[in-house]
Write a protein that binds this DNA or RNA. Structure first.
Length: 740
RNA sequence: GGGCGAUUAGCUCAGUUGGUAGAGCAACCCGUUUACACCGGGAAGGUCGGGGGUUCGAGUCCCUCAUCGCCCACCA
């Protein structure tokens, strides 16, 4: 097909995208080792690994569009550019998904056993990974596939075990019996960050434990009251002062004997409820703290199935909901109920399963975020090797020192606030899919009970001898994600990649995982490598539908990016997700906007047709620029000004501004004005020199347009570039960004 | 309860360090023998949420109020 014939039809994305991506892959240029020319500066970024739970959604498309645009820009600037791909095993999410799939065939995971079940999960994960990779490619992502990583592969497992052992040896990982967030549906512990609060109306009951008990208390959870071991009052409260220190024996509280001590605590609000608080140490974190301070016994009365235990026969074995009814009725029958009042309450639910969280005391593994230790190596600003710091300190300093810059910067405050409220991170999970905790116990029983160092072996490899039993739990998925910037580069081995590409330049991700992921990466990386994980964090917003709702399967409003690509082409989709979308701001996805950029692609296509067909016998490369008239010189100079402006913007990741400016220039200046004003000369209505001047100007502008637009619209620009009249040229991917 | 964001053309949103308001879509008029109807030309549309302040000058900085939204939190 000749150049002219090709451009006679409207631009058809489907016909070029697959072909062009193949050309890019075969060129090897996505791998920084293969990039041409002398490249002394590096630019590196890791892909936030999508969960292997299924397909990509429009949010992923948004992320890929932004990152690929930045990466292509940096590569064209002449940097040794690495964008490293991977996927996340997403422990709980993936396991839950596979369990649901198996349930359709009537299969339960315990029927299969751990090994068989994991085989199924791995098959699913691999399948899902393949889908994700092919979808990612369709977005035009210039990822170095030769370095593909998975959070649960062997190399990452080595990193995880190494990190765990080091933290254990430094006393930063400990095993402790504490009140944790138990998910009765998922049958596992979850971290504080995996809790979602749901506002519900509840009844606030005010009652006495028994007729002779002097103080009334209020609660929304009467069913936990069989586990009470104290009542706390404010020490300044005149009403209750005289009881402080006394212990009351209650022979029968709904069939259960209670022993209640009256304690004093300034955290109790005199004005709230009755001004007295029933303390349930085993089933509330605040109560647990009070119990520790006052040396109160902890009485576990709710088990892992959210059923009552260790109470009287009336309640034992009852679900918490039933137990509540029984106790409420019992209180009424015995004239102990004083008041029932409706109130709004925040109920903790598990992010993944939706189950109501049951706080329970359990023996689990934690990361101590407050313990001071000596940082062995440090390239961090303001912290020397050997300085005493806590993990919290590290997380705070890294951002406070501006060594890490968060965009937009209003997220700094949110980040600091989170750190201040951060409690020890519970990292063990009672699920099968994930990194097995690298801890072995001297016997089976010890796994359930032991907290003593000499009965526990922690190591990268299993201990010698047959008697050791490995902990059956796995790690929170964010533990391995936290290592992502350096585990993907080969850590703990001292690889060349690690030296060249770490710290990475940018982390681009959604603001919804600032705590889950960004903060954990800063924690892990500063501690384990003495470096920051990345210099800049670019937080994008959530993509919502036209009615401003989140995309979800249950709403049925999910958009498959592949359908959009099918209709409008990848370049149009990318532009619609980038133009005028400020960082951190949620965006409303609109097909109309995508349509507008499909038209823009066609506009560009027709400019190509016009420029190429009007310069067919023109010798672009040997044209003497001194012959240009002021008219052309001014136009070219003006565009050069624009280029310097957008180059600076792009370096500051302001691609939402750049894309709009380029769009405006191409359509409303180049096409609407400059092309029109060139027509007379091109039709030989003026002089030969004028015609040549215009021909040169058009080609020169167009060359720069294709290059500057390439990061945003890689497919169409690369395709048009193949016909550009230059003898010496590379693929546009590795052409030099035009700067003056 | 604390923190944050938004409020700009009918709709969805940009507006970089303060210097006479921008885009897409929609709506209006005109135009089609060639780069493009996935188009062109033209016109219309905003006291930048209200009020106050700083400044020669404020969409932009400060204060205050209102509405909507988000995040965090142990009032049991």
């Amino acid at each position: 097909m000749t150049t002219n014939e090709k451009f006679l039809k409207p631009y058809e994305p489907k016909e070029v995208e697959e072909k062009i991506y193949k050309t890019w892959e075969e060129s090897g240029f996505f791998n920084p080792d293969n990039l041409p020319g002398e490249r002394t500066e590096q630019f590196s970024i890791v892909l936030p690994p999508p969960n292997v739970t299924g397909k990509l959604h429009i949010g992923h498309a948004n992320m890929l569009a932004i990152e690929d645009t930045i990466v292509r820009f940096q590569r064209m600037l002449g940097k040794k550019t690495l964008w490293l791909p991977g996927t996340d095993h997403a422990a709980i999410a993936t396991q839950t998904k596979v369990e649901k799939l198996l349930a359709k065939d009537g299969i339960k995971k315990h029927d299969l056993g751990r090994d068989e079940f994991l085989k199924k999960v791995n098959e699913f994960a691999l399948d899902s990974q393949n889908t994700i990779i092919s979808q990612t490619k369709r977005m035009g992502s210039s990822l170095d596939w030769s370095r593909l990583a998975f959070t649960l592969d062997e190399q990452r497992n080595l990193a995880v075990k190494t990190a765990f052992k080091k933290m254990y040896d430094d006393g930063l990982i400990y095993r402790g019996e504490k009140v944790v967030n138990w998910d009765p549906k998922g049958q596992t512990v979850i971290s504080d960050d995996e809790i979602v609060y749901e506002e519900r109306t509840a009844v606030f009951y005010t009652f006495k434990y028994s007729a002779d008990f002097p103080i009334a208390i209020s609660t929304t959870r009467p069913e936990t009251k069989v586990g009470d071991t104290a009542v706390a009052v404010n020490p300044d409260d005149e009403r209750y002062k005289k009881y402080i220190g006394q212990t009351f024996e209650i022979a029968d509280f709904c069939g259960t004997p209670l022993s209640i001590k009256i304690i004093a605590d300034y955290s109790v609000d005199k004005e709230f409820g009755t001004g007295a608080l029933g303390v349930t140490p085993a089933h509330s974190k605040i109560d647990e703290m009070m119990a520790i301070k006052n040396n109160l016994p902890m009485k576990k009365v709710i088990n892992e199935y959210a059923k009552i235990e260790n109470a009287g026969d009336i309640l034992n074995g009852k679900k918490v909901g039933e137990a509540k009814e029984i106790i409420v009725n019992w209180l009424k029958e015995n004239n102990l109920m004083i008041e029932e009042e409706e109130t709004q309450q925040n109920v903790s639910t598990a992010e993944r399963t939706g189950a109501v969280i049951e706080p329970l005391p359990k023996l689990q593994w934690f990361i101590d975020v407050n313990k001071k230790f000596k940082l062995p190596h440090s390239n961090l600003k303001g912290i020397k090797a050997g300085d005493e710091v806590s993990l919290k300190d590290l997380m705070k300093y890294a951002v406070e020192s501006s060594e890490i810059q968060i965009l937009p910067d209003r997220f700094n405050k949110i980040y600091y606030h989170w750190i201040e409220n951060l409690r020890d991170w519970c990292i063990s999970r009672q699920i099968w899919y994930g990194h097995r905790i690298p801890v072995w116990y001297a016997s089976d029983k010890l796994q359930v009970t032991s907290n003593k160092k000499d009965e526990i072996y922690v190591g990268v490899d299993a201990p010698e001898g047959d008697d050791w039993i490995q902990d059956s739990d796995t790690l929170d998925t964010w533990f391995s994600s936290g290592l992502w910037t350096f585990s993907t580069l080969g850590w703990p081995n001292e690889t060349n990649d690690l030296k060249l590409y770490h710290p990475t330049d940018l982390l681009e991700t959604g603001h919804d995982i600032l705590f889950f992921w960004v903060a954990r990466m800063i924690l892990m990386t500063t501690y384990l490598t003495g470096e920051i994980p990345f210099k800049t964090v670019y937080l994008h917003g959530l993509v919502r539908d036209e009615k401003n709702r989140k995309f979800s399967k249950s709403l049925g409003n999910a958009i498959d990016p592949l359908d959009i690509i099918e209709k409008y082409g990848t370049d149009a989709l990318r532009m619609s997700l980038i133009v005028a979308v400020a960082p951190g701001q949620d965006i409303r996805f609109s097909e109309e906007k995508t349509m507008a950029y499909k038209k823009f692609a066609n506009k560009l296509w027709n400019i190509a047709r016009f420029v190429y067909s009007n310069t067919e016998n023109f010798d672009y490369e040997n044209f003497d620029v001194n012959n240009l008239a002021d008219y052309e010189k001014n136009i070219l100079a003006k565009f050069d000004d624009l280029i310097s402006e957008i180059t600076e913007e792009m370096k500051e990741y302001k691609l939402y501004l750049t894309s709009e400016k380029l769009y405006h220039f191409v359509w409303h200046e180049m096409a609407d004005v400059i092309l029109e004003e060139s027509k007379d000369a091109l039709a030989d209505k003026t002089s030969l020199q004028d015609k040549a001047n215009k021909q040169f100007m058009l080609l020169n502008l167009f060359e720069k347009v294709l290059k500057t637009l390439h990061p945003f619209m890689p497919y169409i620009t690369e395709e048009i570039w193949t016909d550009f009249p230059k003898k010496q040229k590379n693929l546009l991917v590795v052409e030099k960004w035009p700067t003056t």
